[in-house]
Amino acid sequence: MAYKAQYYPGKTSVAQNRKKFMDPSYKLEKLRSLSDDDIVIMLGHRAPGSAYKTIHPPLKEGVEPDDPIRKLVEPTPGAAAGDRIRYSQFTDSMFYAPSVPYVRSWMAATRFRGVDPGTLSGRQIIEARERDIEKITKELMETEVFDPARSGVRGCTVHGHSLRLNENGMMFDMLQRVVLDKSGNVYAVKDQVGDPLDRKVNLGKPMSDAELKKRTTIYFIGGVPFRSDAEVVGWVQRIHNERTKCGFAPKL
């Protein structure tokens, strides 16, 4: 019988959201449209329209050593072109942001190719070839895994994921890279590392609290408390039990 990936245990909405975010056969729901140039200026790696900087010639032009893995793995567009490696990094508020760092990394591993995810508590980074990271970032920012008020693209001074929210429901950002204006839309006014943008980017309206709690992947007491998901808690205990016993007696 062929193995069928289950992705995640549990029947709560949080568990189900984690499962579908990780499952590449599930198409993430698109909630907003951003242009390619919007993404480029928010990332801040290159000017819109400028050429990609390269670190090696296009693979087609190079003489590659004979290597079976190279025959098996098709290069990503960025790798094929020789792009340098750049990053996008997200901060997610603990107050019901759609994504959490580990889900972002698991999602990167199941949905994208040629990526190097890194997971911390207050930020999650994906490094990839430049044109690849632009495409990945676009998908991550346009879909249900992102909320303009509770998620942020932050390259440095990411502080805010665990802080109380601003009165208007926005996640704290000492650099104030995004602002909520009177129209109720959130605009990006600075790039990842805090340099002001020449033009602001409309990220749309924040999700309502009800919408956030429906889409979130964090167990939290006002939404789905972790204690309430007995299947996931039991699964974690089982992992702990098995790792402990197998270390103690490898024959197990």
Partner: peptide
């Protein structure tokens, strides 16, 4: 160690790398 596993799974985050 059990606490670390539970914490990571609950909030989808733990410490740094």
């Amino acid at each position: 160690y059990l606490s670390m596993y539970l914490h990571k799974e609950a909030w989808g985050r733990l410490g740094f790398f």
